[in-house]
Design a protein around this nucleic acid. Structure first.
Lengths: 339, 339
DNA sequence: CGAACGCTAGTGACCGATCACTTTTCCCGT
DNA sequence: ACGGGAAAAGTGATCGGTCACTAGCGTTCG
């Protein structure tokens, strides 16, 4: 048994047993080169015998540099974040940082509090938030970057990308003969949800389309289901744009239950390209978001901020890619006419 | 405007400005009572003016007690963990601990390494793992508890619960006239996947059923899709048990594409009760897992270990609940041997 | 009235690492 | 053989808090 009596092994204990000074042991862990082979061997033996590992808390207190970044995830499961996290982690690692992914549960105020706590805790050098935060970054002693997907400011420029896709979708639907539209929105606390709604409404006006309006949703299947179920029978809606794939799934279910065929009577678009959408019947038309590109950009921005470097110029290609699957088709010829 | 020149504000600076000793400021943050109102007010004023918050790294170095627990999530999206995390967080908070949820990406070895690093970092008092870890808990200086869902040892006793559900499902299918079964398994690194497979095979023998065997899956929709697509046309399989809902969705898709009606020609069972399963067509028969109960139990066990208390006796009710939806029906051209 | 006690506040050591600086050792050229 | 300089190793201070102990002061009670 290595450690006896609940006593944590310290660098001094290792130094004592190896017959060297504590500083030499410290060097062993920070700059491997610059030690005589004999010395290194002595230390190595003791370290592996005691199974010693430096106390990172103590290290980071003295050294200031912890080499750790935190990625804040929302607790809502509306993100396919697995790939994204892998990418982020790898990128951070390549730059010499470790990425710790932290999920914070609770309402907006609690989450902002906890993030501020993380920021002032001294444990991290920078924070990357993947969810909206009602937080003034100036109150934080370390850089906080919000991903482009949710960042207000970035959306002023990123809006074009988002906008063009929503417009593209609607134009495509128009070319298939659709004329009456319906939008199931996401929570308006999310900039991305706000943006999609805004562009939807703008495009309706711009192209002179008819819209049955916008339903308030919350990303869930139920919200999509309810929205369609409450649609008047004579609304004439033939094209539905849902805020994400869950809502779209619910919408399709409700439509089928009302006896509307999808896509023969009504077309449905989702957003996010969740795994399940490919395998459901009908399979889901959706928008694949290149979250990797967004994440890459965000973490590069963060690392630059941590290092007090100039932020890298943002050069991303197309972020959103439209995927047409079975849930979208031509508008029914028989005009189920007006309200 | 608060902090000037990148200089972190320390407790001494606060003490100086408030005209008290650093220890008094420390008391202000640890034990609010025991300060004269006048003193407290002076400190409060300075604290809010400077926007000071204690450095948690320094605090936990001296105090040893960090009050923080880490919950390790797998990066695979096969868990509906949102509710669970809320529950865990609340329970921990009630016991005076803060729960930090950490997602670790990478293969098993990397993840074990990172967990060990977290354990020895001094930042946490205990670790709760929601994914399998190839790690010897004895190597960790702090308690590591794995949730019942994945823990080898617990499964020896928890197996009954799991087993009875798989058996119940199969018995139900038999009562509907099904005789030829097929199992799409999950990764065998997961104890839960192993257990389901084991019980499947046992029950096949026990009830004298015919089985087309077990396909190796990885929780994904694709693995379910491929498994069904590769099924020989004359296999005679009429009942499929998938390891989770994703695989089940893929299986249904493949079946439909081969011209098999679900559930008229073939019945499919999932596992996990994901949101989408309720809204897909056909809706998915599945098993709802009371992860909250599992999580509650696990975190209580962890906190007991951290405090060197006796572990609480495990008293959970039924964990798994079978949900029958449209994807399951009577066997085709029924030669029912029913009850 | 004084000793005992409780409450509030202060002093200096200490947690376990690294940093800055100093001392010792080693190697090499003349 | 020796001086010089680089490489290796050591010494003590330090990061920002809390802990253990002590000092001052007002209140209570014998």
């Amino acid at each position: 048994m290595a450690d006896v009596g609940d006593q944590r092994i310290t660098i001094h204990e290792v130094a004592r047993r190896a017959g060297v000074s504590h500083q030499t042991v410290s060097r062993y862990f920070t700059r491997i080169e610059g030690l005589k082979p004999a010395t290194r061997q002595k230390i190595e033996a003791v370290v592996s015998e005691l199974n010693y590992r430096p106390n990172l808390v103590a290290r980071s207190m003295r050294a200031k540099r912890t080499g750790r970044l935190a990625a804040i995830l929302p607790s809502t499961p509306n993100l396919t974040h697995s790939n994204l996290l892998g990418t982020l982690s790898a990128l951070a690692q390549a730059e010499g940082y470790r990425l710790e992914v932290v999920t914070i549960v609770g309402d907006a105020r609690i989450r902002a509090d906890r993030v501020l706590e993380l920021a002032t805790s001294g444990g991290f050098e920078g924070i990357l938030s993947l969810s909206p935060l009602p937080l003034d970054p100036a109150r934080s002693p370390i850089p906080i970057v919000t991903t482009a997907d949710y960042d207000e400011q970035m959306h002023c420029q990123g809006e074009l990308a988002d906008a063009s896709v929503v417009r593209d979708i609607m134009k495509h639907l128009v070319s298939l003969g659709h004329q009456v539209f319906f939008h199931i929105a996401g929570p308006q606390t999310y900039a991305s949800a706000r943006s999609r709604k805004l562009v939807y409404e703008t495009t309706v006006k711009e192209l002179g389309l008819r819209s049955h309006g916008v339903a308030d949703g919350d990303w869930t299947g139920r919200s999509g289901y309810d929205a369609i179920q409450e649609l008047p029978a004579a609304s004439g809606v033939t094209a539905v744009l849902a805020a994400n794939d869950y809502a779209a799934m619910g919408a399709i279910r409700a439509a089928l239950e009302r006896g509307w065929r999808v896509p023969d009577d009504i077309s449905v678009f989702g957003w996010d390209d969740f795994d399940m959408g490919r395998y459901s019947t009908p399979s889901l038309s959706t928008v694949a978001v290149d979250r990797e590109a967004l994440g890459r950009e965000a973490i590069q921005k963060l690392i630059a901020a941590v290092r007090h470097d100039e932020p890298p110029e943002t050069t991303h290609g197309p972020i959103n890619r439209i995927i047409i699957r079975e849930s979208v088709g031509p508008a029914p010829h028989s005009q189920r006419s007006t309200s």
